[in-house]
């Protein structure tokens, strides 16, 4: 039954007010996703330092997923471009270090996007499996 993707480890950066509640909601609704998904919550998705992402990938995570606030961010519209910029910058760094840039993925997760979150996780793990 267990596919190889079940053994993969993914780090999700969630945000305190928007995407982390969605991930909690997924648990609350018993919408199951692979147990290899770990979450670290930060105030805003635009606060994630590239070095943390690279640290995670170097320490053995197979992928990093940024569950971004998108336009829902309580800190304002700058969140969207800032998060996009940091993802782009990190992916460049990753390439330099020989890490496939597909190992970093970002998507906006609203505060009730429990189901999309689970879908994203399944497809991300699937993609990682094929890398």
């Amino acid at each position: 039954m267990e596919s190889s993707s079940a053994k993969l480890k993914v780090l999700v950066f969630s945000t305190d007010k928007i995407s982390d509640p969605a991930i909690d909601l997924a648990g609350l609704l018993k919408k199951h996703y692979p147990a290899g998904v770990y979450t670290i919550s930060v105030p805003c998705s635009s606060a994630i330092k590239p070095r943390w992402i690279i640290h995670a990938l170097q320490r053995g995570f197979d992928g990093v997923f940024i569950a971004a606030d998108g336009t829902d961010c309580p800190y304002g519209e700058l969140c969207v471009p800032n998060t996009a910029n940091l993802v782009a910058a990190t992916q460049i760094k990753m390439e330099k270090l020989g890490i496939a840039p597909q190992r970093l993925k970002m998507a906006a997760i609203c505060s009730i996007c429990a189901e999309p979150f689970v879908r994203y996780m399944n497809s991300f793990l699937h993609d990682l499996d094929t890398i």
Partner: peptide, 9 residues
């Protein structure tokens, strides 16, 4: 407000 947007830049 502690959003941290300044951190990665």
């Amino acid at each position: 407000k502690g959003c941290g947007m300044c951190l990665p830049v």
